[in-house]
């Protein structure tokens, strides 16, 4: 039997369009508080769109999203985005150094990030503090992803949204980041929603998994559902990913 948890985020019949494209179709479901849920599915399924909805970067055209049982619209956008942090898929940087990028979340609030704290965040994601003064232009794709994760952690969000954060990382780094995220989850009880195209990763780190296709959630449950899928579409998708 699946235990019941308080939902950190709940989607109720959520629809999202861009122009004439129907991107999310009546999405309903919950992300349990203090747990790790992965979102998997082919690219273009609407995973990134779903994550941006949770952070309030976009709003649904129909339906309702609840954050900790309150409608998302009842939160001040600035407060919401500090509590619900997102590491964006493209790991965008503002021009300047790694330190300036790590400082950014605090700078926006008129606070100062101590260099010691910045160095310790870098250490968490597996970069040494020599990187603080580096210009972000000179970082590799994987290093940018690490800085982007560290930057998202500066606000200590209660809910952490991760969009394919290990896609440019090698195996060792991937493993380090997986351990870091699991550690944050157990240490602070942070709710985590993690988009990944790596099904092994979903099995390894996540309590729950949602499978999305063409804007619909076609399967949800404990991550083990990926091992021997009952749903025909999920079975095909898993087979395709293994090949």
């Amino acid at each position: 039997m699946q235990k019941t948890y308080n939902p950190a985020i709940h989607f109720q019949q959520v629809d999202f369009h861009a122009g004439n494209t129907h991107i999310l179709k009546r999405v309903t479901g919950s992300f349990p508080q203090g747990r790790i849920t992965t979102l998997v599915g082919p690219s273009g399924a609407g995973k990134t769109t779903l994550l941006k909805l949770c952070n309030g970067l976009i709003s649904p055209d129909a339906g309702e999203i609840f954050i900790k049982n309150k409608p998302i619209g009842s939160y001040d956008p600035v407060e919401l985005r500090r509590q619900v942090g997102i590491a964006l898929q493209s790991a965008p940087m503002v021009g300047g150094t790694v330190m300036e990028n790590l400082h950014l979340p605090f700078q926006l609030q008129g606070k100062k990030l101590e260099e010691k704290e910045a160095a310790s965040l870098l250490d968490d994601v597996g970069l040494n503090q020599g990187f603080l003064g580096r210009n972000v232009k000179d970082l590799s794709g994987g290093q940018r992803q690490k800085v982007s994760i560290a930057r998202t952690l500066v606000n200590h969000p209660e809910i952490l949204l991760l969009d394919e954060i290990t896609s440019s990382l090698d195996r060792t780094s991937t493993k380090e980041i997986e351990e870091l995220i699991v550690k944050i989850n157990t240490k602070y009880g942070t709710t985590i929603i993690w988009i990944t195209h790596n099904l092994q990763q979903a099995l390894k780190v996540a309590d729950y998994t949602w499978v999305m296709m063409e804007g619909e959630v076609i399967e949800t449950g404990e991550s083990d559902l990926l091992k021997d899928p009952v749903n025909e579409k999920v079975r095909k998708f898993v087979k395709g990913e293994e090949a």
């Binding site: 964006l88 950014l104 926006l108 930057r151």
Partner: peptide, 20 residues
Amino acid sequence: QDQTELILSLGGTPKQAIHS
């Protein structure tokens, strides 16, 4: 646009997001 989106996503105001 990605920088604007980044600053908004971190809890910045529109003015902060478009400042540079």
